[in-house]
Amino acid sequence: MADAEIVVITSGKGGVGKTTTSAAFATGLAMRGLKTVVIDFDVGLRNLDLIMGCERRVVYDFVNVINEEANIHQAMIKDKRADNLYILPASQTRDKDALSKEGVERVINQLKEEFDYIVCDSPAGIETGAQMALYFADKAIIVTNPEVSSVRDSDRILGILSSKSKRAEENLEPVKEMLLLTRYEPYRVERGDMLSVQDVEEILSIPLLGVIPESKAVLRASNAGSPVILDEQSDAGQAYHDAVSRFLGEDKPHRFLEIEKKGILQRLFKSKEREGAY
């Protein structure tokens, strides 16, 4: 099999939707027949297992593999819903330096031979943990909320990508950066209370991969431990599907950017479809 492509899901700022996106994206890739492993780099704050619904099946973790206390196949958890999907959980250790560059490289090189995609769920921040998650990346999905501190931190992480990644250090072709704007609320944008997609695109000047609306489906999905992309009725689920398609080169128009305008009857009968928080 060809060498896997390494995709980091990163943001600088915490709590913007990286783990939600990692789970959705990895599942979406696997649903399209691509063999995918999603790695939780958030050492000490393991959560991807909960979002993927495999928390009770964790035996060994990423740090165990790096320390050669377990092999990669003992540590990876095969997803129960998608055939081609594996999860490598983070360790709960409080030792921040548990991941060494050499150790991570060894594990990634091993995974590269078996998989089409390696998705790295980055911890928040711009320090060691986040730098480790993005170091080996070929592509970076920058998860951003339409809010000042998130946009600024996204720009900081772009700075790290262009100076501290392996590709930057070795003067290779730069990491391909893509913007994923999440928790978008068209209603507030229209009122002038929230930065628009165009605003954020203009400020960060990187290509737009997708816009995920603020959605009640996301909390329901994490309650159930089932990535929101599997809720195909939901706006967020559909928006993630579109983003995965675009990532794979398909041309998909952006949806959920405007307030849905519905007649009163439609509103009565279809109100369940409306998942946004407005």
């Binding site: 000042v148 946009v151 600024r152 944008v189 009122r191 002038g192 209370d193 929230m194 930065l195 628009s196 605003d199 203009e202 400020i203």
Partner: peptide
């Protein structure tokens, strides 16, 4: 709008 202010400050 506050969004316009936000955009200018960010830029």
């Amino acid at each position: 709008s506050t969004a316009t202010t936000a955009k200018e400050r960010l830029q």
